[in-house]
């Protein structure tokens, strides 16, 4: 059934427009409801972390924002403009491929399994998008890629193919590749989950750097509670496709109100 979209604004107005707004977003696979009526605002430069048990829909939130998943209800706005929908004759309709391509250009994403292009070197990975999509000259793209590889500490490996890099190194290149597209919003989907424990730090340090020096808007899904606590402005605990509880890291980790949050946090602590 088609949802009546007439109640959703064509554009967000007023002061304090959030960088990202999920408005009554619903996602289901057949009968399985993954996200149920999600409302979530992320302010510009805010760092929001999503935690929760597996199957709670946390990764889906990021994937919808990257437009890797379609949504079944509601609207997502980015920088005041609809992402999943486009205005047509004064109402919102589901976005077509062309609109989506334009709309998603302000979003970048890093994946659990890095997904670097294996047939390209580290620097080629970081130049591909800027040259093909942003239309930069190879020289400009190379300069920018080199700057970013310096930032993530990978410049000395710039001519290596991913198969020659460790997981932590690949993930740092992947972060540089995403940043090379100059996104306004960065998404980190369990970027340390596939890493050996001893290299997790090199990736989290890069992200910390981004948070404290560059003030990008970021949304992160992680199982690293200590990391989430250190760098987040806000933590959302997802349970059963809903935000069960959210607050500052200090509030949520030290003084969780919901019973489910308490249970989850003590289970995670016990596992550590």
């Amino acid at each position: 059934m088609m949802e009546d979209l007439s109640s959703y604004p064509l554009e967000l107005g007023g002061p304090n427009i959030p960088m990202v707004r999920f408005m009554k977003v619903r996602k289901s696979y057949g009968d399985l409801i993954v996200l149920d009526n999600l409302n979530l605002d992320i302010a510009a430069s805010e760092m929001v972390t999503i935690i929760g048990p597996s199957g709670s829909g946390k990764t889906t939130v990021l994937r919808m924002l990257m437009t890797l998943e379609t949504i079944n209800g509601g609207v997502i706005y980015v920088d005041g403009k609809p992402l999943t929908h486009m205005p047509q004759n004064g109402v919102l309709v589901p976005a077509d491929a062309r609109y989506l391509r334009k709309a998603r250009s302000s979003i970048g994403m890093c994946f659990q399994h890095f997904n670097l292009f294996p047939h390209m070197t580290a620097i080629q990975n970081c130049m591909e998008g800027p040259v093909l999509v942003l239309g930069l000259s190879r020289r400009e793209a190379q300069e920018r890629a080199e700057e970013l590889l310096v930032m993530v500490g990978m410049i000395d490996k710039k001519d290596q193919h991913p198969s020659r890099l460790s997981g932590g190194q690949q993930q740092r290149v992947a972060i540089a590749r995403a940043l090379a597209m100059r996104p306004k919003v960065m998404l980190f989907d369990e970027v340390t989950s596939a890493l050996d424990p001893e290299v997790i730090g090199e990736v989290t340090n890069v992200i910390k750097d981004l948070v404290f020096k560059h003030r990008l808007t970021m949304l992160m899904v992680t199982h690293q509670m200590g990391f989430a606590r250190d760098i987040s402005d806000r933590v959302c605990f997802f349970y059963g496709g809903k935000i069960e509880e959210q607050g500052s890291p200090a509030e949520l980790f030290s003084n969780p109100k919901s019973k489910r949050t308490q249970q989850f946090l003590s289970a995670v602590k016990a596992a550590d």
């Binding site: 990257m66 437009t67 998603r104 970048g108 994946f111 591909e128 999509v133």
Partner: peptide, 19 residues
Amino acid sequence: GQWEACTAINLTTMQTYRR
């Protein structure tokens, strides 16, 4: 994941196939 990475850096379908 390769396709998803292409979406994330916003390549067109043609570019995704070709490159």
